[in-house]
């Protein structure tokens, strides 16, 4: 464990806490893409298949359980909660995310570290995570204005993978045969996808204005 990875995990945790805060405090999920939340639940469920077979550390197991539980809780809340689900922007959240699942799975079959069930699903979860934010960014683009908590949620969600890139660089130079090129390339793509959002987020923060995304 290094400081970059720990910072990344904490930033990721903060993004989830901000999302939960937004939904429970405002009893509204406006501006949140249910499709992105469903993709993230799938990412965690397929990535942590080794949850009960390989014990890494208490921290690792607890964080995996938190990520799985929180992503499922958000999906269930947005689908079932009678008050929250009324505020879901159903007609704006129309990204065809099934294509993202299909593309990630095909790519995982072609490009993986080892052609085993667990490795293919791990690669699938890595590719899917890089694309999972797309429905959310499209939704924000269409709705134009971004409320603070939603903006902070997306910001922290993007920032965590940037910390992981620093972690991979650090591990590359400190551990002899460390090679996570699948996660690294995918993590770079993921961080770049957030780039335009980061730009407009920084501009709105600098002008202390409400964040507006160009339609």
């Amino acid at each position: 464990m290094n400081i970059f990875r720990f910072a990344g995990d904490m930033t990721h945790l903060i993004s989830i806490l901000v999302l939960l805060l937004k939904i429970y405090a405002t009893k509204s999920c406006s501006g949140i893409s249910l499709k992105t939340q469903e993709l993230y639940a799938l990412v965690f469920l397929t990535r942590y298949l080794d949850l009960f077979t390989d014990f890494i550390s208490v921290y690792n197991t607890i964080m995996k359980l938190v990520f799985i539980a929180s992503s499922l809780a958000v999906v269930c809340c947005m689908r079932m909660h009678r008050v929250v689900r009324r505020s879901y922007d159903k007609d704006l959240d129309t990204f065809r995310h099934y294509f993202l699942i299909l593309a990630s799975f095909v790519l995982a079959l072609l490009v993986n570290e080892k052609f085993t069930f667990q490795e293919i699903f791990w690669a699938f979860s890595i590719y899917l995570e890089a694309l999972a934010i797309l429905p959310q960014l499209v939704l924000l683009q269409r709705s134009g204005n971004v409320d603070n908590l939603t903006g902070q949620y997306v910001f922290f969600l993007g920032a965590y993978r940037a910390f992981y890139i620093l972690n991979w660089i650090y591990r590359y130079f400190t551990e002899q045969h460390f090679s996570r090129w699948i996660a690294c390339v995918s993590g770079l793509v993921q961080t770049v996808l957030y780039a335009d959002f980061f730009y407009y987020y920084f501009i709105s923060w600098k002008n202390n204005a409400k964040m507006q995304l160009p339609a």
Partner: peptide, 10 residues
Amino acid sequence: TEPSDLKDEL
């Protein structure tokens, strides 16, 4: 599984 390909990252 060998420790090398253990996925120790989240």
